[in-house]
Design a protein around this nucleic acid. Structure first.
Lengths: 115, 115
DNA sequence: TTGACATATAAGCATCTGCTTATATATACT
DNA sequence: AGTATATATAAGCAGATGCTTATATGTCAA
């Protein structure tokens, strides 16, 4: 989980087509042509997206005859999840820094401390 | 949370400089020149990044004299968090589809069903 | 009012991105 | 062997991206 590999994951996930691919791969293993049916781009475009997913560690391939079967490897998504979770405290209320302050105040109140 | 605005958030967050900006804004409200101190790029570059964060709804500004004070709005990050959480089941084990299958098997076993 | 400061915007540029078509590679079928 | 099928790779291109310098805008201070 170096900064470089982390960046690969964030970049991979920033594209809507690749997010759609991940969603499909979450359901099952798919060949390229099966994946292709769900999109309006060319086969090379799909292969190129899959390459980026592989590079980011978000997908695996195995060969089956002349087909290549892609599957999901969601492990790197955990990093994104954890990164976002780091900000969880800030979206509970929409007040940002002030929210933290209010949280503290409320905490204090709960404990029956004077303001 | 349209698909378009969602995309803005994913894109905004895909850049390491902007992620660093968010991290700073999570700590406090900052002026542009204060933010600038933490980076090796020019002032316009920072202003441009901040613009994208604003567009994605990840930051707010208020004017204080001739300074502009930026603060975090983490709300849109919740979407990313939830999106990633959708894959949580897949990173618990590193086996993807097979993992699900094994999960089911294990579930079955727990219930004392025959294999 | 004049000049310094803080920030935004404009314009230009190199690089990256996502796409296409054309082609290479490998396997399967007859 | 020869043809069709499945996928990857190469090359090229338009548009996006991130940066820079130059400049505009607005506020403060003497």
């Amino acid at each position: 989980m170096t900064s470089a590999s982390s960046d690969l994951v964030f970049r991979a996930v920033s594209d809507p087509t690749r997010r759609a691919l991940l969603e499909l791969l979450a359901q099952a293993e798919y060949s390229v042509s099966e994946l292709l049916e769900h999109f309006k781009v060319s086969q090379p475009a799909i292969s190129q997206h899959l390459r980026l997913l592989l590079d980011a560690g978000l997908a695996r391939v195995r060969t089956d005859g002349r087909r290549r079967l892609y599957s999901l490897d969601a492990a790197p998504l955990r990093e994104i999840h954890d990164w976002a979770a780091h900000y969880e405290r800030f979206w509970d209320n929409r007040l940002g820094r002030l929210g933290q302050y209010l949280d503290q105040k409320q905490e204090a109140k709960k404990r029956g401390l004077p303001e």
